[in-house]
Design a protein around this nucleic acid. Structure first.
Lengths: 337, 337
DNA sequence: TTGTAAGCGTTATCAT
DNA sequence: ATGATAACGCTTACAA
């Protein structure tokens, strides 16, 4: 009766009622419990410091009020920022988030989904690596509602929340154009199989109306020499009449570009223009400050959580696509000249 | 028999054996199961795609193979880096980590610990805010093993893993001294009640043997004007014979100092020396590069996980203090002159 | 070596 | 309005 956490039986005994009554105290108090009994139960609960076991509840109810959140890489500030928004929204709706970090290791999605499913999560929020196709299968197997963040998967008709990539790219390019930066290089992590990267790259292509010209460079980790060469080529292409600028596909790329520029001894805003996706907190400190698209990460996370919770509350209907606008933060790296 | 996940009963039925036999297949296969029966069970498992429910197992066993990890702020790269190390070590030992993020909101520790305890976590790894004293109580109430990361709590006799703060501070100061930076300012987040900050501040004091001189400035969020004033005062104090340098207490402070220096129009490495705790990935990009102490975050997380798992495996004995060495990364901000 | 049955801490369906 | 009692999916004596 006393070792470990008190159970519903302990409370029932202490209050001199049945387990069912104690359970009702938590679940249907107003509707069907007499005030004096309720008071006795309350007293027993306080005295013992009782709290229901979520695990036992989940087992019995078949629902856990747990939401499974899979992130591609917890070390990536974007993932973390989104995670924060989602976690807060879930918590406010009475759900707890169970987190699974893929650590950027490919092929762990299935493991993640199954581990989470084992804990009877009621639904999934997925910010996956985006490659491979184990995700659709694994999710389908669970038959639980899902919302995708940032990266879509072919063959999955689920809710999807992300930045408006095309709109953000248009903002970046027209801003650069207005500043007189006409020879662009879009630097992205390897595109293959990742929807976000594909979309941004495609949007970059459509932004290249005359007088703008541009090309794309895929920057892989550790491949710094190639990036240096690409930047050198960019400036050569631009010559002395057209100003060269880099558009970075995300904060990881921004860091690589900043390192490269430093190594080349160039100055942002004069030797090379810059504007990129994501707005890391160190962006104002690099050279004259880096112009960036700040993603509404909180809203993305919150939107995803909302979508999922609506589904959990029975909302049915076609898969939704929620695209949120980025905010252009102008700094010296894109100064007109 | 078929809706939702298959259960142990489904497998038992399909294999024509009892539930107990299926259970034994997972838990005591070698010791007490005949090969042919094992094969039949295996076949049924494969056919149905069965996996045991961790929740039901936890309920039945009283142990969950879950470790509760509380982090002060998931947006803080230090927390995240430690988390990664801990998570990996736990996973390799067959434990899953259940994460609770305090989001830097004071007073949520108790909530966190109780929520985690509800899921029957076998033990806790705590990287808390460090203020208040709800933590010791809440933990004691659960009677489960605990290891503290980075911040200690008075009145808790538990394992503790952290950076060797005194050693790291000594490295920073003697490095600055060697470079001729003799007038120091230690900038820290508000010290009150946070053991790490207290220890580093104290260590700074003991480093100030002649010819070194120094003082301490507590920098609060949003209080930029005061920081600017403190830096100006530092340079004034130094005069023209002694070179002034800042020691930053962590990456958050480093960011603030970098912003302030930029605003003042100073140059790191000449107008102002710098060396700080934590080595964010943008440190090489600020001015001539910022000299930093890189914390062994992976090792800290892993060490904490190991400590806890040993306790879970029955290790008993006095509370341990594991202090790990930081690594000094020298860059231009502390250049001798 | 295998099966039976009683738990683990809840909720839900009956009665009363 | 309240109390038995059977689930929920699993483990573990105890029997056989």
């Amino acid at each position: 009766m006393s070792a470990g956490r008190p159970t519903i039986s302990d409370v029932a005994a202490a209050a001199g009622v049945s387990k069912a009554t104690v359970s009702r105290f938590f679940n249907h108090r107003e509707r069907l419990l007499s005030p004096d009994i309720a008071a006795r139960v309350q007293a027993a609960i306080d005295q013992l410091g009782y709290a229901p076991s979520p695990m036992a509840q989940a087992l019995s109810r078949g629902r856990s009020r747990l939401i499974g959140l899979v992130v591609a890489d917890i070390a990536n500030p974007y993932s973390v920022a989104v995670l924060r928004g989602a976690e807060r929204a879930c918590r406010e709706a009475g759900y707890l988030v169970m987190l699974f970090n893929l650590g950027n290791e490919p092929g762990r999605e299935r493991e993640a989904i199954e581990a989470l499913a084992g804990y009877q999560v009621d639904g999934f929020i997925l910010n996956t690596l985006g490659r491979g196709h184990s995700v659709p299968d694994a999710v389908a197997a669970q038959g639980k509602p899902v919302v995708l963040i940032d990266r879509r998967h072919t063959g999955m008709q689920t809710d999807f929340v992300a930045l408006d990539n095309a709109g953000a790219m248009a903002q970046l390019c027209s801003h650069l154009q207005a500043g007189g930066w006409q020879e662009l290089l879009y630097v992205t992590e390897p595109v293959a199989g990742v929807s976000t990267r594909r979309e941004r790259t495609a949007a970059f292509g459509t932004c290249l109306q005359a007088p703008m010209a541009g090309s794309v460079f895929e920057s892989a980790e550790g491949d710094d020499a190639a990036l240096l060469a690409a930047l050198a080529a960019l400036r050569r292409r631009a010559g002395r009449k057209r100003r060269p600028a880099v558009v970075a596909g995300n904060a990881v790329v921004t860091l690589r570009v900043a390192r490269a520029v430093r190594e080349l001894g160039w100055q942002f805003g004069s030797d090379l223009g810059f504007a990129g996706f994501d707005d890391p907190d160190w962006a104002p400190l690099i050279g004259p400050g880096l112009t960036c698209i700040a993603q509404p990460t909180d809203a993305i996370g919150e939107g995803a959580a909302r979508c999922l919770i609506e589904r959990l509350q029975g909302h049915t209907g076609p898969a939704r696509r929620v695209l949120l606008e980025g905010q252009l933060v102008v700094r010296g790296s894109s100064a007109p000249g």
